[in-house]
Design a binder for these strands. Sequence first.
DNA 1: AATTTAAAATGAAAGCATTTATGGACAAGG
DNA 2: CCTTGTCCATAAATGCTTTCATTTTAAATT
Lengths: 335, 335
Amino acid sequence: MTIYDISEKAGVSIATVSRVLNGSNNVSEKTKKKVLDVINQYEYTPNAFARGLGLNTMKTIGIMCADSSDPYLAKAIYYIEQKLRANGYDSILCCTGYNLDTKASSMNLLITKKVDGIILVGSNFIYEKEEDNKYITDAAVQVPVMLLNAAMDAPNVYSVVSDDFTSMYDATLEMIRSGVKDILYFYNSTSYSGKKKLAGYRAAMEEKGLLTNGSFLQLYQGSHEDIPAMAEQLIKLHTKGITFHGVIAADDSLALGAMKYGREMRLRIPEDLSIIGYNNSMLVNCCDPELTSIDNKLETLCQHLITTLMGVLGGNEMPKKTVFSGELIKRGTTK
Amino acid sequence: MTIYDISEKAGVSIATVSRVLNGSNNVSEKTKKKVLDVINQYEYTPNAFARGLGLNTMKTIGIMCADSSDPYLAKAIYYIEQKLRANGYDSILCCTGYNLDTKASSMNLLITKKVDGIILVGSNFIYEKEEDNKYITDAAVQVPVMLLNAAMDAPNVYSVVSDDFTSMYDATLEMIRSGVKDILYFYNSTSYSGKKKLAGYRAAMEEKGLLTNGSFLQLYQGSHEDIPAMAEQLIKLHTKGITFHGVIAADDSLALGAMKYGREMRLRIPEDLSIIGYNNSMLVNCCDPELTSIDNKLETLCQHLITTLMGVLGGNEMPKKTVFSGELIKRGTTK
DNA sequence: AATTTAAAATGAAAGCATTTATGGACAAGG
DNA sequence: CCTTGTCCATAAATGCTTTCATTTTAAATT
């Protein structure tokens, strides 16, 4: 069933069928109805490949993320996918892992597949070294690239971020104000937003004259699912004689690791150990007491990202970088 | 940069370039090298739309799931996406929600996009009423449909499931054996696998003569993220005078709800309240004590599903339904 | 009412970038 | 000299969009 069959049965040319299909207004109501009737009768849908060839687009956006099973990224993907669909776009999902080469080749693959734009979900896509980000600027030559939770200044690259520095700065001050002085910062990456968060913590601690020699910085490298391993690392720290009465974690998983550590050391939370997480994900309800966490307004970020992308695809001038503020949601793990 | 440009620069016809591109063996090593050199030099990649038109495939599989932010589904999607990619396929993700009409229209959309196959992730895609599943059989006329955690007997529909009945039956018996008699079954759907699980629980309870009038069956209807709401429901039950010393939950989220209930009622776990979850997801580590849960071998299921799909696409005869057994992973919430 | 003019509706045909069937040229072998 | 097989080019096919030219229709003018 092709456009030719339809045109024949409707007694018009294929050009007219095409016009009806694409909502061109240069077609009389009468013939439009005639054509639509035939289309409905035969349940005809145009061939997407041929259409793609003609239009040079298939209304598809590539979504890249390191690991779609990470609850935070999964949520972001969910919002993005929903909002894309609401705008008539589909999405090709690409889980890249954390390896640079894989990211670069996935990017090429998406471009080869002729996506109309690429969304990078997560701050891990931006690297310290300028040259490591070449894969992004290269891609941006072909299609617009959107960054969620990361920023980069390059042509055709658009960034939507949460103000991680301020969120972390405020949260740290808040914990200090509650009476906790020895606060461990527990983090898992020095990605774009990772650095901002760390800087926020640092600034607050420094301001209050609480910054020690760095022993209060703990990098965790492992699966976001391996909460026991996180606790383990903190216990080791304790064994080494490094003690602390507060933990600020760069994400909620790490905060759960800290909670497990607290339980195993028989510390009361929050009396003996205050904990703040980041992302305000579903994990905050999974523990007891419930986790105080920073909400970075993920849905708002995603909504804005899609709006911007749609603007760009529509040929409009759009802001290169947008920053939203986060909010500390207080629950049981802080005083 | 098209195949014509390449053919011209290499001094061959476009047919030869195409042959080189598609690994046809009817081309001499010499010209093959000559063509490849030009291709590499100009970084030429064939146009996916034109190729799709010619080959009538773009090596893309549609993945449908109700909610990609559900940790279990997210994990499944992750495995599936990875394994598809390893086989040279891409995936279009489609989050449908739980509405039948949306599912049906998403399905059509994927077919319109000319995917080579469709994977339905999650048991909620199969409905009680035969006619409600028509959208699946209709789609299966066009492309193979794979079901994960659900089964259906129809042409061109393939099912990969975990033996939920037996897993639940065994788990229930195990809890009874540990001395708990009044076991609440806490579930959230009567989807395909939901029914199997419920039946497993029922069979075990009946066998031991413990099945009461149904007051031990609790249906939860709400967001999988809203753990407080789950606890709330159980507390209400308690208020009504219905008491129990064991909870078997249809998934790990619900089990966490039960744990929250336990904490709020100041019950010791597992002494006063035993809990078993389902899926053995990352959530099992998020609580204290850690959650006993049924592992349904998700990665194995996904691997097998992809293998089957690849077989079908390769034109081979493949098993219509495959069943894997689950395994009870004992942790701190059971005696 | 007849004529002109502009606008709207339509069709023919030229892309779009591939794949592939068909057949021709050439070399080697009988 | 004829056959066989390898290698390659020509050309058709894929199913749509869109430009351009043409026809039809409606409105404006006389």
